[in-house]
Nucleic acid binder design. Structure first.
Lengths: 206, 206
DNA sequence: ATAGGCTAAGTGGTATGACCACTTAGTGAG
DNA sequence: CTCACTAAGTGGTCATACCACTTAGCCTAT
């Protein structure tokens, strides 16, 4: 038992979440109950919970309890921004990487989707672009659908992280030009390289 | 002061590290000293420290103290592997994303490099491939150089994370075929799309 | 004087108990 | 039936007391 206690507790929590098939939004046992059941001090439980919170895995609400999170990980983003990404280049890096990931997602999507998938996406995308007033939200919602269909959860999670950071830093590079968006959406029927071309045109039309 | 205390402490620590220009390996004040100076309880200090530890920012050694870490973030990798990447598809996701990032890096590199950069890289790459016996290491070293020249730190950090995980899971997809590597390296002189083609051929030659 | 072991101080690790602030549900008065 | 209040439960914080471990300094025996 040389390992640190809060890491053991992390494992127990992990087991608990899996065994009970907890979903995002579900409630975890209270700190006092956990410390009783695991035979550890409440402070140790709290240390474990804090490290989960900073990672965006859980959310704690005073007076209510501890809940499983929907990824989001805004804490992580914030910490990355203060601790790791301190350089001036970081903002540029983030936006650049975001674009790269979106390109990758487009290619992945195209390599996996059949015609029906594509036409469904196009329909959905048109609806999104028409509905949303805020172009940043429209872009995010649209690409959320694309990433879902790209079928790589890890890729999507990183992208969501970057999107949140981009929103925080209010450095949105997204065009309000709806026409460009419609062109881009239509290009989804074409070959991979044409889609990328349309995407690059879209991005550059700021 | 609605914000949570441990987040405030995180800020204070950040300030301290910056003001004193602490380097990786340097020692932080002890928990008791911190709780005195900041006028907070030791348990709150510890909660802040745990969230830094889980992120791989600091390292604590019983009886010695708390020390700043050099990046790498192996803790983060481990946690990703246990908490975020629990699905069965995760290994596939990781390898797939790693490939996508390497493609992105190649394109970034090509968009930024001039002829001299390219020829220098080719020389270096040839040397690496000839020297390294382990194909996984050769691949990692080679792409490390490429990512450095792609000039996006965030992209590189994520790739390093994935590389470490790939090494841990011993699921290396890398060919031992040196010939394919040499072909790939030579392609670096060509246009972007030809490089990508050579890379894909390399990856598929497992 | 030196080598070896011992001791004390400092440090992180953990448990416990005591409050506080907040939320919720239930209870009771109107 | 409605509204206000109360009690229980929950996270947030602090203080204290140990434990386990490391280090440095002292003291002893050689």
């Amino acid at each position: 038992m040389g390992r640190k206690l809060y890491l053991e507790i992390l494992n127990e929590l992990h087991r608990y979440v899996n065994e009970n098939a907890l979903q995002p939004g579900d409630k975890l046992p209270s700190e006092r109950v956990l410390s009783d059941q695991l035979n550890v001090g409440r402070s140790s439980v709290r240390e474990a919970l804090r490290s989960l919170e900073i990672l965006g895995v859980i959310e704690t609400r005073r007076g209510e309890g501890t809940f499983l999170c929907d990824i989001s990980g805004h804490q992580l983003v914030e910490l990355l921004s203060t601790f790791i990404l301190t350089s001036n280049k970081s903002k540029t890096d983030i936006n650049e990487l975001k674009v790269l990931l979106e390109k990758s997602a487009l290619q992945l999507f195209k390599s996996r989707a059949n015609e029906i998938d594509t036409s469904k996406l196009i329909e959905l995308a048109s609806e999104i672009v028409k509905t949303q007033k805020n172009s940043f939200d429209a872009h995010t919602l649209l690409f959320r659908e694309i990433f879902l269909r790209a079928n790589n959860q890890l890729l999507m999670k990183i992208w969501i992280l970057l999107s949140e950071y981009a929103r925080m830093s209010e450095d949105s590079f997204i065009s309000t030009n709806i026409l460009e968006y419609l062109k881009f959406i239509n290009s989804l029927n074409c070959e991979s390289n044409e889609i990328i071309a349309a995407y690059e045109k879209l991005i550059k039309s700021v």
